[in-house]
Every structure is written in C-alpha cells, then in structure tokens.
C-alpha cells in the first residue's frame, strides 16, 4: 500500500502551518521528516493518520490494504501513550479488543509481538515499572499487533536518553529487515534520520514547505555509527537546517507546540 500526499496546506487561525506539501511514500520505505520545531511535522503526521483534516489538499492511499491488517495507519507516539492502569499485555490487548477475534487468537498475537520486541518477561508489568526505552518498546509492540501497513512515528525516540535511543534504533533496523514495514518517521534528530531513512524530507520553518528530499541508497543494515558517508549527509542536512532552526528559535510562539 502506497501513500500519496497532494498539495497539503493548512492554517491554524491566521498562522499558516504547512504549505503545499507533495509527497509519496512507497511500500517498504522509511521516509524521515525533519525540520525545525514548530514547522508542522506533527501536524502533517496527524493528517496522514486521519486524526485531522487539512484545509487544502488530500492524503490518498493506493493499492489494496494488506490482508490481515487491522489498522493500516498506525501511530507510535513520542510520549508512548500507554494506559498507566493497564499492564504491558493489557495495553497491547486494548487495541485488539475491538476487533472480532477469539481470545485464543488475541493471546497468540500478544505473545508474538511481545516476543518480537523482547518484552515477554515483562508481560504483567505496569508502565510505571518500566524504563522509557521499555515503554517505547511496548508502544511499538502495540503498533505491530494490529499489523500496520504504514507506521506513523512522531519523534518516537525523542523522550529517551541517547544510549537507549541507539539500542532502539538498532531494534528498529532489525525489525525493518525482517518485516520491511513502511513508515513516516518524524524526528528532529539528524542522526536518527540518516540511520533510519531511505529518504529524508527536509521541511523549512513555519509554514513548512519541502525544501529538499535527500535519498540514501545504503542498506539500513550497513549503516553504523561513525560512517563517513552518512556523516557527510548529516552535515549537509545540518547546513540546510541551521538557518531555519535559528530563525524558528527566535519566533514568538503563538500557539501550542
């Protein structure tokens, strides 16, 4: 299933947030979206996920929804969005309970995704007992359980410390190599973008427009820290973003971030 954005423009009140965004996301591809804070990255992701409607333009899906996908467009949130009163397995169960399936099937899916994210021994734990990295793994397990066609990830690693972030990036790479999932991955961290993105979309400051799309051919599995080619890309991205970021930083916020 492919994703197509056409001419997306949006205003909140008088402020234009996004301006004329055209983008296509192919199957099995991870597209990273970067840009200075407040440029509309989260807003764009909400449009893609159907949580909000843009003023102009449209988000289109092409191709059939993969068989067995319960929630084709599935979010992973920056702040995990786990229900604090539910255990790890019950948090995963939550998103399956509204679908017609037997208790056995549900149990199997839960056991499977928890095994795939290395959480099997934490089944009964409550979110407050888990570290940030573990919580985000639960959120990823929950997303996987509905067999998404496209994962919409809004700064999924930004709330984590840098070591945990490295670990989870490795996990995501492993996961992608096994399952070839499609993802829109919003981040402000350039290292994450060059590590995980097949293509990197650079947005300008508000109103967000596409400034450049950088493609990285290197297979995800071959990208490691300290890779000179990736470092060069990262520097190039930083050149593009620096002035935008500085200008965005000096703007007076007139809405919620």
């Amino acid at each position: 299933m492919d994703l197509l954005l056409r001419g997306i423009t949006h205003r909140y009140g008088a402020t234009e947030v996004l301006s004329d965004i055209d983008l296509a996301v192919g199957e099995g591809e991870i597209v990273c979206i970067i840009g200075p804070s407040g440029c509309g990255k989260s807003t764009l992701l909400r449009f893609i996920g159907g949580l909000e409607r843009p003023d102009e333009g449209e988000v289109l899906l092409s191709g059939p929804v993969p068989a067995g996908s319960l929630n084709p467009l599935t979010y992973v949130f920056q702040d995990f969005a786990l229900l604090p009163w539910r255990s790890v397995e019950a948090n995963v169960s939550l998103v399956l309970e509204d679908h017609a399936m037997s208790g056995r099937e549900r149990e199997e899916i839960i056991a499977d995704v928890l095994a795939r994210t290395g959480l099997s021994e934490f089944r009964k734990a409550l979110p407050r007992q888990l570290s940030g990295g573990m919580k985000q793994r639960v959120a990823i397990a929950r997303a996987l359980s509905v067999r998404p066609a496209v994962m919409l990830m809004d700064e999924p690693l930004s709330a984590l410390d840098s070591q945990t972030r490295e670990l989870l990036m490795d996990d995501l790479v492993d996961l992608w190599q096994r399952e070839r999932f499609t993802a829109c991955y919003v981040t402000h961290n350039l290292a994450e973008a060059v590590r995980l993105g097949h293509r990197i979309v650079v947005l300008s400051r508000r109103p967000g427009r596409i400034r450049r799309i950088v493609e990285i051919d290197r297979d995800l599995g071959d990208r490691g820290p300290g890779d000179s080619e990736l470092d060069a890309v990262q520097r190039e991205l930083w050149q593009l973003l620096r002035d935008e970021a500085r200008a965005a930083d000096r703007e007076i916020a007139d809405g919620v971030a």
């Binding site: 319960l70 949130f77 939550l94 998103v95 309970e97 509204d98 509905v146």
Partner: peptide
C-alpha cells in the same frame, strides 16, 4: 484525562464506547 491517550485510542480505531469505557472512565 490525558488527551494523547484519547488520540491514541482514536488512532487505533477504537470505538467511541471503548474509548469512554477503557480510557476516559479509568
């Protein structure tokens, strides 16, 4: 109630009644 939890429920396609019962009420 944390709005991101409600948003999460919507993004997973939970029914209105499920969101009220499993997210808002607790």
């Amino acid at each position: 109630v944390d709005r991101t939890l409600v948003r999460m429920g919507q993004s997973f396609g939970l029914s209105w009644w499920s969101i009220v019962r499993k997210i808002i009420l607790p």
